[in-house]
Every structure is written in C-alpha cells, then in structure tokens.
Amino acid sequence: MTPRPGREEDPDRLYTLTSGRSRPVSDAFDLVTLVVAECDPVPGMQSEHAAILRICRRPTAVVELAADLGLPVGITQVLLCDLLDTGRISARHPRTVRTAAQLPDPEILEQVLVGLRNL
C-alpha cells in the first residue's frame, strides 16, 4: 500500500457517478457482453459516458470497458444501462453456440494441461 493513500486517485466517489445506484436495472449486460456505440459523445455528457462511447467505437466487452475506465464492473453496468436506455449503445452477446459445439476433446485439454505443467 502506498504511504499516502488516496493521493493519486480521483476525488469523485463512485456513488456520484451513478447517483447512488449500484445495480443495473436490466440484466442486459454480463462480463463478456459486447458493446458498440451508436453515436459520438456530445459536450456536456458525463465524462464516463463519453469515454464509453469513444472506447466502444469498436465492439468491446463489458469487462474490458470496466478495466479501461478503472471502474468496478457493477458501476460500469449501471452506466451502460443508462446509455442503452437512451439508445446510445447497443449490446450483444458473443456467439457462444458455435464455440460450445467446437469445444475440443477433454483428453486433448488434459494433455495440454500436462504439457503446460511440464514446461
């Protein structure tokens, strides 16, 4: 821990970012939901919203967004819900069906594990 805690961080507390909300109103977002911006940031927007819109010019996973913003995932989800409600972003889940069908044989995975341990 740094000798001067809090010296480097920002003064705004997390609850002021979301007006005290800590859980998203919808469950549209989980950790790997891909988010795409539908518009550009406008002046006067909350800076986190603007940052999300900038990062999400390319599809970005929620967890990556949270890491980029330096915010907890829960707070990020609340912010994303706000943007989703106003239609500024769209969200979709990564295609899990195809990857689930293509999961390799457990034996191969085991061999990989053994090989990795031998490294």
Binding site: D10, P11, D12, R13, Y15, T16, L17, Q46, S47
Partner: peptide, 9 residues
Amino acid sequence: ESILRGAMG
C-alpha cells in the same frame, strides 16, 4: 467535473 462531483459526494 471531478471537482464538482467530489464536492457533491
């Protein structure tokens, strides 16, 4: 913005 939110918090 952080000044305002820091005060508000």
